[in-house]
Design a protein around this nucleic acid. Sequence first.
DNA 1: CGAATAGTGTCTGTAAGACAGTATCTG
DNA 2: CAGATACTGTCTTACAGACACTATTCG
Lengths: 237, 237
Amino acid sequence: MPNETKRRIDRELPDPVICTVDVVLLTLVDDTLQVVLARRSQQPFQGLAALPGGYIHPATDRDARDAAERVLREKTGLRSPYLEQLGVFSGAGRDPRGWSVSVAWYALVPWEALETRWTAHLEIVPAGSVRGLPFDHERIVEEALDRVRSKSSYSSLPVHLCREPFTLPQLQAVYEATLGESINKVSFRRKMEELGFVEPIPGAQSGGAHRPAQLYRLRDEFRRNLSTTDRGINSGG
Amino acid sequence: MPNETKRRIDRELPDPVICTVDVVLLTLVDDTLQVVLARRSQQPFQGLAALPGGYIHPATDRDARDAAERVLREKTGLRSPYLEQLGVFSGAGRDPRGWSVSVAWYALVPWEALETRWTAHLEIVPAGSVRGLPFDHERIVEEALDRVRSKSSYSSLPVHLCREPFTLPQLQAVYEATLGESINKVSFRRKMEELGFVEPIPGAQSGGAHRPAQLYRLRDEFRRNLSTTDRGINSGG
DNA sequence: CGAATAGTGTCTGTAAGACAGTATCTG
DNA sequence: CAGATACTGTCTTACAGACACTATTCG
């Protein structure tokens, strides 16, 4: 037993644990969910593409959410995307530096919000083709995708992938991309009415060819909270 | 800035974080969800009733789940209840010892499994009347209850509160207690058929007065995994 | 006017709830 | 046989999906 360990146990304190946050940042390009990766600037795995992540800084972070927001800001410039906790990934084997706890988060942003801040150390990969990530980041991505797909089927979650203002056909396309299946148009519009998280912008209509569509925006109450239904937006769970 | 902090930052390592697990152990007594609390044997808050919890021990715990199972075993003697991660509660303010991360879990057991191992430092409190807990344990309990109630409405979760073997009317009563509302008998039985996580025990029937009921058991595939439906077991979410 | 997209009216099938009926035990 | 609980058959209602129809733009 190393001396440091012995000293700690004498004081009834366990060994220290490496505490980090990792963020699965998702966006939609070409109707496909994409994961945003950042090239690692530090050891271990320096130079590899990985989930944006970093140490929790107890001196400056109020809590783990604060740490995740800081990491996202530092690596992508994003200020306040939709961000939700995914869970903890922990253990002796997942990080070569030692026993670690990573608080994992997932975030959703419209591609347009990312595009303007794009830098060379960032990379996007279609959600289904994420390979060769360090740590247990592939498993974190898998769980994030499961969670996002599942929540999309009964909540307003996917709206956070959609640039505002949007039309209902656009929003439906975002849901279809997220869920990976097509949705009945009539049912979809009924559900949006029922969920009530979007509101038409008076007088605003989309331009372009063909019949213009009503423009909608997200109601303020649902920027940080989801609107949910128990019956499902599509048929499958 | 304290010296230790400075030394760590020079090495690019942040301050250490206190890493613990806390478990919201739930059981059903008198058709009411109950939270199991343990009197704290150590500082801080020594002597107060709190969620069973403790430090993560990197030297012996494989991961955070392992730590939660160990804590549960040490404080209640339970070997393998249904156990699922709730999430992380973190920050500078929640623990007087300093900046901390608690990985919170919830566990479900039939009361009969607890009764036999009951000790004086344990306590049960109806889920709606949990008051005066230290740390942010009341918030953790709230979130656990929300999660359990929500999952109960579309999954096999409540079966883990039910002693085996059980009858369908008994299982329905467990669902009703967990959801806090009565369920249509015909619908409930249809749903149990659809979810398929219980199987009749051939030839086994409940005794007692009146017409005996068919006895059921949980299928082995669903001891660690839930069976879910997207349409809901009751009407409300 | 034709093509294309937006949006609606309405029918049909499915699944949930209500309710009443049958079944099987004890005393 | 009365009472109590287990279980089932069936009607009604609500909601999701299909499909066709109308509406509005551009060229």
